[in-house]
């Protein structure tokens, strides 16, 4: 575990906490894409299949439980909680995310480290995570103004994989082997998708103005 990896996990955890805070404090999920949340729940469920069979460390197991638990809780809240689901804007959250799931699954069956259930599911979760933010970014561009907590949520979510890229670069130079090219390429694509969001986030921060995404 190197500092970049730890910073990445903490940034990811912060993004989840910010989203939970927003939903719990405001009892609203306005500006949040349910489809992105569903995709993330699928990402964690398909990636952490070995949660109970392959113990790595207490930290590893705890973090996996937090990510699976929080993503399912958020999906449940947005679908079932009486107050929260009323604030869900399904007319704006129209990205056809099932195509993303299908495309990632097909790609995972073609491009993986080994053609085994666990490796195909792992590659699927890596590819799906790279594009999972698309419904959320499309929703933000449609809804124009972004509230602070939503903006911070997306920012930290984007930043965490950037730290992972630094972690992979660090491991490439410090460890004798490097076999994470699938995660590395998908991670670069994932982080690149946030590029324009980061740009407008930085502009709004510099001008101390409201975050505005061009329609």
């Amino acid at each position: 575990m190197n500092i970049f990896r730890f910073a990445g996990d903490m940034t990811h955890l912060i993004s989840v906490l910010v989203l939970l805070l927003k939903i719990y404090a405001t009892k609203s999920c306005s500006g949040i894409s349910l489809k992105t949340q569903e995709l993330y729940a699928l990402v964690f469920l398909s990636r952490y299949l070995d949660l109970f069979t392959n113990y790595i460390s207490l930290y590893n197991t705890l973090m996996k439980l937090v990510f699976i638990g929080s993503s399912l809780a958020i999906v449940w809240c947005m679908r079932m909680h009486h107050a929260v689901k009323r604030s869900y804007d399904k007319e704006v959250d129209t990205f056809r995310h099932y195509y993303l799931v299908l495309a990632c699954f097909v790609l995972a069956t073609l491009v993986n480290e080994q053609f085994t259930l666990r490796e195909v599911c792992w590659a699927f979760s890596i590819y799906l995570e790279a594009v999972a933010i698309l419904p959320q970014l499309v929703l933000l561009q449609r809804s124009g103004n972004v509230d602070n907590l939503t903006g911070q949520y997306v920012f930290f979510l984007g930043a965490y994989r950037a730290f992972y890229i630094l972690n992979w670069i660090y491991r490439y130079f410090t460890e004798q082997y490097f076999t994470r090219w699938i995660a590395c390429i998908a991670g670069i694509v994932q982080t690149a998708l946030y590029a324009d969001f980061f740009y407008y986030y930085f502009i709004s921060w510099k001008n101390n103005a409201k975050l505005q995404l061009p329609a």
């Binding site: 070995d50 996996k64 792992w122 995660a183």
Partner: peptide, 10 residues
């Protein structure tokens, strides 16, 4: 150790 290295990340 190899397998450990590739799947110890989240």
């Amino acid at each position: 150790a190899k397998d450990q290295g590739t799947k110890d990340e989240l």
